[in-house]
Amino acid sequence: MSVSGVPRHWRSQRERYRLLGTYCENCGTSFFPRRKICPKCRRKGRTREVEFSGRGRVFSYTVIHVGSKTFDEYAPYVIGLIELQEGPRVLSQIVDCKPEDVHIGMEVEVCFRKLFEQEDGGIISYGFKFRPVDDSWVEYYGKLLAEKKARTAQT
């Protein structure tokens, strides 16, 4: 991609950085990418911008072994169709796991990564990707507290 890719980068930057979509207050449906009018309610729709929670499940996925020039250095990589908690499906890379660990229904959460870099010192495009949900960190606080108590008891 050349400098001509800069306007496209600019147009999609906000929703890529923050996973922004549209919510229709009339029918309660969420959309991604953003819509100006609700396709269901048409002129009755009341749409507003919404930042999605970033949690979802793998609806489907594929493993890319031979990527396009822009993405080839990431190969093999996983492209998933992620169904967000709010409903919309989003196409995204799934990272921080091996291709063989991905499965349909797997819980994923949003993370912030480099999407691609334009050649020859061009713009770096950042945005959302998804990684497996790992809530095991919650249990660490119990362990940390117990360790601290043991240390205090020693001294």
Partner: peptide, 13 residues
């Protein structure tokens, strides 16, 4: 860092 991580992505996380 992974190929798709740099100072900006680490800072955001």
């Amino acid at each position: 860092p992974s190929l798709d991580e740099d100072t900006a992505t680490i800072a955001v996380e």
